[in-house]
Amino acid sequence: MERRSFLRGAVVGGSATAFGGTLWRGSAAADPAQPGAGPYGPLEPADARGIRLPEGFTSRVVARSGQRVAGTSYTWHPAPDGGACFADGDGWIYVSNSEVTPSGGAGSIRFTAAGEVAGAYRILSGTRQNCAGGATPWGTWLSCEEVDRGYVYETDPRGAHAAVRRDAMGRFTHEAAAADPDRQVVYLTEDVSDGCFYRFRPRTWGSLSAGTLEVLRMGPGTSGPVTWAPVPDPSGATAATRHQVAGAKRFDGGEGCHYGAAEGVCWFTTKGDGRVWRYDAAAETLQLAYDDSLVPGTAPLTGVDNVTGSRTGDLYVAEDGGTMEICLITPDEVVAPFLRVEGQGGSEITGPAFTPDGTRLYFSSQRGTTGSSSGGITYEVTGPFRT
């Protein structure tokens, strides 16, 4: 019997237990999250854009691949992927990667305090397969190349400064990045079936030009203490970075990554096995927060990919495929759909990111209704988010 079917059957047979917030509190005996009623209630019928949302929430389209962003001269890039929001005076900026080769790169949309588009422009060009990335505390966007021996590029969301390639952060199949200002490190995921989980320790916090790339080591299993070891050759010239350190923990397709400052935890996803992981940075322990094979019946969250967090501690996990949903995992370890995109089964959901005040959520359908990278659609959702 296939492992995932066996585990799902075991849960149905009674091995699942009730949940009481133990993952967020860091209990070593915590169980992975399970389906339940979400804080916003059930999804309503699809709106005119094919988006199903809870009552009180609305959506709008802010950009389409191959078309000019309304009121600007910038043509929105193909295959929009990872994204983040940055404060900009009274308004904000949404940054989005472009997961295509050879052009790749990233673009930005600037919004006024009222949510109106005030500008759009390119911030990174000439790179390859820019998938996810992450924001830094000093207001830059790290755009990651998801190719063999790919780079991380540090970009300016406002477009005032040229992007800089950050070689010291290693050359591998980069996916996402999450800055931890408390320990002054940046966590990095690797999207291959036997990938690793890394952290970059800058020589000087606030500068990514030099530092030490480290890889997580851990014994067998899905929870327990971890250690970190330097990667001897971050360039990957002598051997792939994931093969350089004995005992490096393997992860099946590292995807999204998010650091929750309030709880001191870095969350990351692995699409190959449908898991969400919880790394307690203070305790240096790893736990399994969600596994779709440990859900009885049909799992509400599959194809785990990009991830972000709200100000109240909810995790929002986007699906690559699945039922084209963004699901949330609450601090009480309840998994529930927050939205579903109808009629776009050949796409995936990417780039979820909240505005600085937590009242608007942006995301993209990477290939839209066409199933092609030229058909990407970027949306905004507003409503009574918990703030």
Rank of each mutant, 00 (worst) to 15 (best):
Glu2Cys: 06
Arg3Ala: 05
Phe6Leu: 07
Arg8Ser: 08
Gly13Asp: 08
Ser15Met: 08
Ala16Gln: 12
Ala18Pro: 00
Phe19Tyr: 03
Gly20Tyr: 02
Ala29Lys: 04
Ala37Gln: 03
Leu43Asp: 05
Ala46Pro: 13
Asp47Ile: 01
Phe57Asp: 06
Arg60Trp: 01
Ala63Ile: 01
Arg64Gly: 06
Val69Ile: 14
Thr72Glu: 06
Ser73Glu: 14
Trp76Gln: 11
His77Glu: 05
Ala79Met: 12
Ala79Phe: 12
Ala79Gly: 10
Asp81Lys: 12
Cys85Gly: 15
Phe86Lys: 14
Ala87Asn: 04
Gly89Gln: 07
Trp92Glu: 09
Ile93Gln: 14
Val95Thr: 14
Ser98Ile: 00
Val100Asp: 13
Ser103Gln: 10
Gly104Met: 03
Gly105Ala: 10
Ala106Ile: 00
Ile109Gly: 13
Ile109Ala: 14
Phe111Gln: 13
Ala113Ile: 00
Ala113His: 07
Gly115Ile: 02
Glu116Asn: 15
Glu116Leu: 13
Gly119Ala: 10
Arg128Cys: 05
Gln129Val: 00
Ala135Val: 00
Gly139Met: 02
Gly139Asn: 06
Trp141Arg: 11
Leu142Glu: 03
Glu146Thr: 01
Val147Gln: 14
Arg149Leu: 04
Glu154Leu: 05
Asp156Trp: 03
Arg158Ile: 00
Gly159Leu: 10
Ala160Arg: 13
Ala168Gly: 15
Phe172Gln: 11
Thr173Ile: 07
His174Trp: 06
His174Gln: 14
Ala176Tyr: 12
Ala176Gly: 12
Pro181Glu: 04
Val185Ile: 03
Leu188Phe: 04
Thr189Arg: 10
Gly195Trp: 01
Pro202Lys: 09
Gly211Met: 02
Gly211Glu: 03
Thr212Leu: 09
Leu213Ser: 06
Glu214Val: 03
Val215Thr: 14
Val215Gly: 15
Met218Arg: 09
Gly219Lys: 02
Pro220Leu: 04
Gly221Gln: 09
Thr222Cys: 14
Val226Tyr: 08
Thr227Ala: 15
Trp228Ala: 12
Arg242Asn: 10
Gln244Cys: 12
Ala246Ser: 13
Arg250Ile: 00
Asp252Phe: 01
Gly254Asp: 02
Gly256Cys: 05
Cys257Trp: 01
His258Tyr: 06
His258Ala: 05
Val265Ala: 13
Val265Phe: 09
Cys266Arg: 00
Cys266Gln: 01
Thr270Asn: 10
Thr270Pro: 04
Asp273Pro: 00
Gly274Arg: 03
Gly274Met: 02
Arg275Gln: 08
Val276Gln: 09
Arg278Trp: 01
Asp280Arg: 08
Asp291Ser: 10
Ser293Thr: 01
Val295Asp: 13
Arg311Trp: 08
Tyr316Asn: 04
Glu319Trp: 05
Glu319Ser: 13
Glu319Arg: 08
Asp320Ala: 11
Asp320Tyr: 09
Gly322Gln: 07
Ile326Arg: 15
Leu328Cys: 13
Leu328His: 15
Ile329Leu: 11
Asp332Cys: 07
Val335Pro: 09
Val335Leu: 05
Pro337Asn: 04
Arg340Gln: 15
Arg340Lys: 11
Glu342Tyr: 03
Gly346Ser: 11
Gly346Gln: 08
Gly346Ile: 00
Pro352Ile: 00
Asp357Tyr: 06
Thr359Val: 02
Ser373Ala: 09
Ser374Thr: 10
Gly376Lys: 11
Gly376Ala: 08
Tyr379Ala: 14
Val381Arg: 15
